[in-house]
Amino acid sequence: ICIPFMPVFLSMFTKEQEVISSGVQYSTIAFAFSTVIMISLSFEKIFQAVGRMKLTMISLMIGCISNIILDPLLIFGVGIFPEMGIRGAALATGLGQVFTVIVYLIAYKKCSIPVEISRKYLELNRNLDGKLYMVGIPAILNIALPSVLISFLNQILSAFSGSYVVVLGIYYKLQTFLYLPASGIVQGMRPLIGYNYGAGEIKRVKKLFGISVLLNGMIMLVGTIICFTASETLMGMFTENPETVRFGTAALQIISIGFIPSAISVTASGALEGLSKGAQSLVISLLRYIIVIIPAAYLLCHFAGADAVWNAFWICEFITAVVVGIGIKYYWNRLLQ
């Protein structure tokens, strides 16, 4: 379904035919591995749910390291490998996912886990399936919302300069290094909160949430310091264009103001999913990616220019953190009585 729509989708972000052509080549191969990626994600969550976090880490590391090794070999055609360019980068990514799945399959066969995968469990169960989708659908939307935000911001920024679009893309690459550790803490917190809530250990649930907020806050603090002190260096890692570096340096310093309050929202969203409150978690994501930031970005861009649009990020994070704080005070305490 996605492959035929890629030329139209990519044209929303650039008019350069070479870029669109490369994007289509990459995405065609990448989407061919979609089933493998879904199997990998399923195994990842199954092993995490039963507490085998080290195994998922090893599997993902093998896939990532394989990807890193294969990238130059398939892109530039080293030794026996063909020179494939952008298609080689996509194939390396797909093969990395294949290696991850192979590790999971071996681990499933060799390691004893309290979950059995069998066709006999594929019979319909409305009650169980309903609970699964009540948590799953909001989680799906949580993952999709950042893409909606990026698409919107690209549309309004492209009207000013392509450099702003590049800066936005670089920022989202950089913030991955910051939010992935935070996401890892949330991943570990989610099943633990679920276990303890199910066992009636409410004090432990509150303690786990508090510790997770503290840890994520420390990660965000480090990220804020790095972005304030080394923003120009970080931008220089991705581009040599002086204008893009200048725009990006200012953007990183402004956006990073909202990192620390975002720790509250990110952790609360994960905790609610651990308590099977997917709809409430979705509300937080809607505030962060749609309800607050999109109107703020549009108004700032319209009245103060493209340079002001970056303020929408920290404004959004502060407003969301306040709303989440109020929600914790009233809804959370009532939930955990």
Score class of each variant (00 low, 15 high):
residue 4 P to N: 07
residue 5 F to R: 03
residue 16 E to F: 04
residue 18 E to Q: 07
residue 20 I to D: 03
residue 23 G to D: 03
residue 38 M to P: 03
residue 46 I to C: 10
residue 57 M to E: 10
residue 59 S to F: 08
residue 61 M to Y: 01
residue 62 I to Y: 06
residue 75 I to C: 02
residue 80 I to M: 08
residue 83 E to L: 00
residue 87 R to N: 00
residue 87 R to T: 07
residue 89 A to S: 05
residue 91 L to A: 13
residue 100 T to W: 01
residue 114 P to T: 04
residue 117 I to G: 03
residue 120 K to H: 04
residue 122 L to P: 01
residue 136 G to T: 12
residue 145 L to G: 02
residue 155 Q to K: 14
residue 156 I to F: 08
residue 160 F to P: 03
residue 167 V to R: 03
residue 168 L to P: 08
residue 170 I to S: 07
residue 182 A to V: 00
residue 199 A to H: 05
residue 203 K to L: 14
residue 212 S to I: 09
residue 218 M to F: 15
residue 223 G to H: 04
residue 224 T to E: 05
residue 230 A to Q: 14
residue 231 S to I: 05
residue 232 E to K: 13
residue 235 M to S: 05
residue 247 F to S: 06
residue 251 A to L: 10
residue 262 S to F: 11
residue 263 A to R: 06
residue 268 A to Y: 14
residue 269 S to A: 13
residue 276 S to E: 13
residue 280 Q to D: 13
residue 281 S to Y: 04
residue 283 V to L: 10
residue 285 S to T: 10
residue 289 Y to N: 14
residue 290 I to Y: 08
residue 292 V to K: 06
residue 298 Y to C: 02
residue 300 L to H: 09
residue 307 D to S: 10
residue 307 D to W: 04
residue 315 I to D: 10
residue 318 F to P: 07
residue 327 G to D: 06
